[in-house]
Structure formats: structure tokens, C-alpha cells
Design a protein around this nucleic acid. Sequence first.
DNA 1: GAATAATGTAATATATACATTACATAACTC
DNA 2: GAGTTATGTAATGTATATATTACATTATTC
Lengths: 68, 68
Amino acid sequence: MKNNVKVARVQVDLTQAQLAEQVGVTRQTISLIEKGKYNPSLKLCLEICYAVHKTLDELFWVERESDA
Amino acid sequence: MKNNVKVARVQVDLTQAQLAEQVGVTRQTISLIEKGKYNPSLKLCLEICYAVHKTLDELFWVERESDA
DNA sequence: GAATAATGTAATATATACATTACATAACTC
DNA sequence: GAGTTATGTAATGTATATATTACATTATTC
């Protein structure tokens, strides 16, 4: 679950803790999402988008892996 | 969790069952997502995007509700 | 370089996405 | 209108996203 949350968060000058509070989750959840270790819910993805002023595609889009 | 999955699915001429099989979930899951009763995971959202040839923003973006 | 802030991460608990099974209704075809 | 296909949805079980608590490590600041 690679994504661009960390870069976008730093761009708007928020710490993990601040972003977490804005979107209503814990700091640990933000950390794990940035590390790609969680598969976040759509709702949480949208909240993060709003907080850092980006769209879903900008933060979370990944091209399909070439078919097996 | 309003979204545009149903319209996009019909455009590529897939039934709920066919889409479900392509993305690796059950038909019930697709039905509930289309009905807006599930908050799907990012991974599943991406799989659906690939199957119907749309992006996250096209299928799942919703503007932030005006702040309270 | 000590104090503080920011981040990584582990252990355990809880909520919920999703599966499974099943049945009911709606729409389409003969 | 009977048979089939597509869809809605309920009950129960399982996997996992997320919370909570806690501690360690890595900047940053004085």
C-alpha cells in the first residue's frame, strides 16, 4: 500500500500527531499508513485528503501491477 | 459512502457477480458497496478501479462536507 | 550533550470489512 | 406465467483495521 501521505503531510506542515487528530485517528494509525503497513478505509483516505488538500488520486493511486 | 461504482460497472457491461470475481470479493460485498453501506478498503477500491477502467477520483471522490 | 519533540513499533483489545450460507424479490426470456 | 438471471439483504463467523498503552529511537533545540 504505497502512498504519498507523508510528503503531502510535510508540505502542509503537520506532524503525524496533528494529522491524526484532524482526521480522528491515533498517531500510530497515521504512522502505519505512511509506512504502507495498513490498508486504510476509503473514509479515512478521504479524511486525510481533506486535511492535506489533495485528492484520492494524488495521495493513493497506484497503477495496476502487470497481470500475471 | 456514495460512489459511482454501479454506473461504471454497467458501462463496462459487468454484472455484480462478474465484477466481484474479477476483484476477488463476493457479490454481496459489491452489492453493499454500490448501495453505499460499506466503507471499502483502499485496496478493494483500487481493484474495482482497475476492473472498470476508472480512477479513484472518478469512482470514489466526494467533496468534504461543510465543516460543522 | 541534555532536554524535548517527532517518529517507529510491540502487545493486547475492539470494531468492522468481508466471507459464507441462505433466501427473497425484480427483471428478463421462452 | 414459468424458468432463469441479477440483485437485495439477513445471520453468523473470521480477518484485520484501528485503539490503547507503552517504550525505544531519531531529530531538533537550548
